[in-house]
């Protein structure tokens, strides 16, 4: 077996792990690191339930090798809240009923988190396109779109409060 040492910053912690080169990032996170927030829905990079943030970009962890993350900064839904304070997207998904079964939610949150950093004041159409790599079978997206809009407002308010 081709094993390699991989070092990465995972949710703010420097880690060093031995991984098989074929280990998919989603399995590494879920089974080796016990971070089960990223979910497996399709395994062919269509559903986005496994979305995590790698070096400031949203990536589908089912189609990415753990070894490719060597030296990277990886953030999962478990790292989204800051010291017990929920991130604005988490609050907004809760307040706008942007989730039902919860299975797509970690991926939706991680995509939304990054999307709003790249586009802090999006239109509804931009949100829909921004989330088009994430499938949800429960909500019909309407409340998810509302949640992302609401999170945008929250983040802007936070920004102006700290400015």
């Amino acid at each position: 077996m081709a094993k390699q040492i991989v070092k990465m910053n995972l949710n703010g912690q420097e880690i060093e792990q031995l991984v098989d080169s074929r280990t998919l990032l989603v399995h590494f996170l879920r089974e080796q690191m016990n971070l089960t927030g990223a979910h497996i829905g399709c395994e062919t990079s269509h559903c986005g339930a496994c979305t995590v943030d790698i070096d400031g970009e949203s990536v589908k962890a089912c189609t990415h090798l753990a070894v490719q993350c060597d030296g990277c900064e990886v953030k999962t839904v478990e790292g989204l809240a800051d010291g017990g304070i929920l991130h604005a997207v988490q609050e907004a998904f809760y307040e706008e009923h942007g989730l039902q079964c919860g299975y797509c939610t970690p991926g939706m949150l991680m995509t939304s988190y990054r999307f709003l950093q790249n586009n802090p004041n999006p239109t509804e159409d931009e949100i829909r396109v921004g989330l088009s790599g994430n499938l949800c079978r429960c909500t019909g997206y309407q409340n998810i779109v509302k949640a992302v809009k609401s999170a945008a407002v929250k983040l802007q308010q936070k920004e102006s409060a700290t400015a």
Partner: peptide
């Protein structure tokens, strides 16, 4: 092409 996450890779 593809979707937002896939376009990152």
């Amino acid at each position: 092409i593809a979707d937002p996450q896939v376009r990152n890779r």
